[in-house]
Amino acid sequence: MIDKNRVFRVLQLAGLVGLLAACGPSFAAESDAAGDEIEVVPVRGGVYMLVGGGVNATLQIGDDGVLLVDTMQEDMAEHLLAAVRKLSDKPIRYVLNTSGNPDQVGGNPVIAAAGSTINAGNVAGAIADSTVGAAVVAHENVLTRMSVQDPPPPFEGWPTSTYFFTPTKDVFFNGEAIQLIYQPDAVTNGDSFVYFRRSDVISAGSIFDFTRYPFIDVDNGGTFAGTLESLNNLIDLTVPEDKQEGGTMVIPARGRLCDESEVVEYRDMLTIIGNYIREMIDEGRSLEQVLEARPTLAYDPRYGADSGSWTTDMFVETVYREFTANGSSEQ
């Protein structure tokens, strides 16, 4: 017997995806950067998106020096450093990490070692110590995660400044207020947004991956519910320009430069998939039956994967197990 409700949902989702695709540039091809190449995308003012090895980093340059948000994978570190040096010969003062994932911290040792720390703080003289690398700033849980790994990553790449008891950490650099804003239990337990307030640019990290379903790292405290909540927080921070286009720019962990409309689409997509899985759980369906029903079907052409380190089935299973562990009606 045909499940009419399921057919209706699939057609409804397919129609939504078709509508989004019809919007043209919203779903344009991703960056052409490939291999060791680093593509530089000017965003606003002194803020740039750097694209290489399939991931993004954020660069801010100005009179005070260079600040980087995330450092890509370990094997991209030298290429990232070379790309930075083409844009500025000022000292690298800060590395801000949005999480402890290898795609965000892999290049920390190389990038930090190439920089120098401002010893006297942002106000009192800005005296640099060239014998000490750039300051590495992240949430305390990033430091904890790196310190307990076996084997641990190089000590030179560990955070040198962390925050834990407050929801934000402030940095003032190149004439701009910059905030790290903690997002509890998102894709990990150590995620932060980095908000460039004057430039109105947000580096969102792995919470917003515009190329796939979010990699919810359960072993490191990640949750589907926390990821959705963090996306809602991201939307609260963004302000669109005319006709919901432009305004606050958002740099995802992967994929092209975005604005609020793409974040809303991504959040809505996850909400729809989550609601569909929850309904099937309430109907008493097993994990195998949910996987067979393909609750992500309408979005798989854009975000799905049948192979690799994070497949569509792995994403669905993670959401299913979280819902069943907590009681689906409570989500």
Rank of each mutant, 00 (worst) to 15 (best):
I216M: 01
N220I: 06
P184V: 06
A204Q: 04
A225D: 07
I178Y: 02
L228D: 01
D185P: 02
P184G: 08
F173Q: 05
I181P: 08
Q183C: 11
T188C: 10
T188Y: 12
I235L: 12
P214M: 11
T211R: 10
V187D: 01
I235Q: 09
D170M: 14
I235Y: 05
F208S: 00
D200A: 08
V187K: 00
F173T: 10
D217F: 10
I181Y: 03
S203K: 01
S192D: 14
T168C: 13
F210H: 00
N232K: 15
R197G: 04
N189F: 08
F210K: 00
D191M: 14
I235D: 04
G190K: 05
N233T: 13
V194I: 15
N174S: 09
Q183L: 15
R212F: 04
D191N: 15
F215A: 03
R212N: 08
G205L: 11
N174V: 10
Y195C: 07
I202K: 00
G221V: 09
F172C: 13
D219M: 12
N220M: 08
R212M: 10
L180E: 10
G226I: 06
S230E: 01
T168A: 14
A225W: 07
S206P: 03
N233A: 15
V218R: 13
S199C: 05
R197K: 15
F193P: 03
A177S: 14
E229W: 08
T168R: 14
R212I: 13
T188V: 13
V194P: 01
Y195W: 12
I181E: 11
V194H: 00
Y213C: 01
D200N: 05
A177Y: 06
F172K: 15
N220K: 10
N220G: 03
L234T: 02
G175K: 14
D191E: 14
I216Q: 00
Y182H: 15
V171N: 10
V194A: 04
Y213G: 01
D209A: 04
I207F: 08
Q183V: 11
G222N: 05
L228E: 06
D170V: 12
D191I: 09
R198Y: 02
E176V: 09
Y182L: 09
L180P: 01
I181T: 10
I207T: 09
F172G: 02
S199Q: 04
F215M: 07
D209F: 03
T168S: 14
S192T: 14
L228V: 13
V171Q: 07
T223K: 04
A225M: 11
I178N: 02
T227D: 05
S203W: 00
N174L: 10
A225F: 09
S203E: 03
V218I: 10
D185H: 13
S192N: 15
D191T: 13
I207N: 02
N174R: 07
K169Y: 15
F224S: 03
V201R: 00
F208G: 01
V218D: 05
S230C: 03
I207R: 03
G175Y: 13
I207S: 04
G226D: 04
V218F: 11
D200C: 05
T227Q: 07
R212V: 11
N174Y: 05
S203D: 04
G226C: 07
G205R: 06
T211H: 06
F173M: 12
P184K: 15
A204R: 00
T188Q: 07
V187W: 02
A186N: 05
